Simulated assay, not measured.
Amino acid sequence: MNELKENEVVNPKSNKSVPQGSMNAIVFHDYGDASVLQRGVIDIPDRLPGQVLIDVRASSVNPIDYRLRSGEMKGLLPGGFPRVPGYDVAGVIADCAGDSPFAVGDRVMAFLDSARGGASADFAVAAVDVTASIPDSMSFNEAAAIPLAGTTALQSLRDHGKLEAGQRVLINGGSGGVGMFAIQVAKAMGAKVDAVASGDNQEFCLKLGAERFFNYDETDIAQTSETWDLIFDAAGKLDFWDVRERLSESGRFVSTEPDVKGMLMTIVTLPMSKKSRVMLAQPNADDLRELIRLHEKGQLQITIDAIYPMSQLSRAHQHVEEGVERGKVVVTSD
């Protein structure tokens, strides 16, 4: 989608041209199903101080993308159209300030810090502190799969779950985008990891590092006699009150489901020994660098379920809505 680059100016730092004018993007002008996603031409975003302009080579689709597109969360993120969906970006620095830690041409990934997204376009802007350099050994497709899902897994386990080496953690939804990262991050942290997913994903979860596997069609976690120090509901399907007896005395329950009930549970359980937390990932370059470090050490493999061109973003959204078998759905620049 990067053909509209005729109008350019020179970046004084690099003597390379900086895109100006219009760009291709996938936009939506109202809430609805995946058919509201349409190809359009919009202005290339202005790079503000403290930001970089990224020539997008790949992105990925997360459940939050179709939930925002459908209007499910319009109470949390009201109005304003057209919108460009997506928060995951992998690409090349097209413009940056003279004192930036990056240079034009650097390969980077970013977890976009705009509440409105912006990844599904030729170019995107991101704050320097949510952008990280990627090694030559990492493809743009792999890099695009990491930011939101990987950060969600890392922050859920480390910051909200307070996971420590030797503790037992259960990952519900272990084969999905967030769960895939969570199993591996928890293993790298020295935890004893169990996973829940459909039966045909047993081998996948065990290869990622899970020690035990539970088929959700055969086992109701709430009815088992097991206990864990942390239950991380990466699928957003469990209820704290249903599984609280499966937590150790000071155990924690962390969910990725940002609904009113979950947020209320965060408040209600504050004085309790067993706590419930709803997490919303916060863009952070240090966390991206930690995930890249784990990948380079061989402790974080990236599984891509499907790849779509940007022009077929609506199909990619439908794929994620219908359910991803294993890993992430990646979208490449046309």
Rank of each mutant, 00 (worst) to 15 (best):
V130T: 15
S250F: 09
A110L: 04
D194C: 07
A165V: 00
G236W: 08
A127Y: 03
L53M: 14
S133M: 10
D334P: 14
K261G: 13
S22A: 06
I134H: 02
Y31D: 09
S225V: 03
L163A: 11
A97P: 06
R326G: 03
Q38C: 06
R293C: 00
T227M: 07
R168C: 00
P135T: 12
G161D: 12
L163D: 08
G118K: 05
N215H: 10
D46M: 10
N15S: 14
E296F: 11
T219F: 04
L76T: 02
E8K: 13
Y308E: 03
G71I: 11
A234N: 00
V185E: 08
S139P: 04
A58N: 10
T269F: 09
A165Y: 00
T131N: 04
Y66C: 14
R168S: 15
G327D: 00
G32A: 09
A149D: 03
S120A: 15
G176W: 06
R252Q: 09
F102I: 05
G32I: 07
Q38R: 15
L76Q: 13
T266S: 11
A94S: 13
I304C: 03
R83Q: 13
F214S: 07
Y87Q: 01
K5E: 05
G117I: 05
G262C: 08
G117K: 02
A143T: 10
F232K: 03
K274A: 07
D46S: 14
I304R: 06
L208C: 13
Q312V: 00
M263K: 11
T227R: 11
V92A: 02
S314T: 03
A58C: 05
L53S: 08
G251D: 04
G262I: 08
V329S: 05
A90N: 04
E322W: 02
F253C: 00
N215W: 04
L170Q: 10
V254P: 05
M138P: 02
G91S: 11
D287Y: 14
R107I: 02
D217G: 07
S175G: 15
S17A: 09
M180P: 03
M138A: 05
S120R: 02
L4R: 08
G86F: 14
A126M: 03
P63E: 11
Y66Q: 11
N7Y: 11
K207V: 12
V61D: 04
T219S: 02
D122W: 07
S311V: 07
H295I: 04
M279G: 07
T256P: 01
M310N: 03
S60K: 07
A25R: 04
R107S: 15
I44K: 13
A97H: 12
T332I: 09
I171W: 04
S198P: 12
A144P: 02
L300S: 00
Q51Y: 09
M265Q: 11
A306Q: 13
V320E: 09
I307T: 15
Q38M: 13
G190Y: 12
V61M: 12
A115R: 15
E72T: 14
F81T: 01
D33I: 15
M23V: 03
D220Y: 09
F111Q: 00
L76E: 07
N11S: 10
A191L: 06
G177I: 09
D65Q: 13
G323E: 09
L37P: 08
S333G: 01
V92R: 08
S250M: 05
Q282W: 12
P63L: 08
S314K: 14
V52H: 06
L300G: 00
L238W: 12
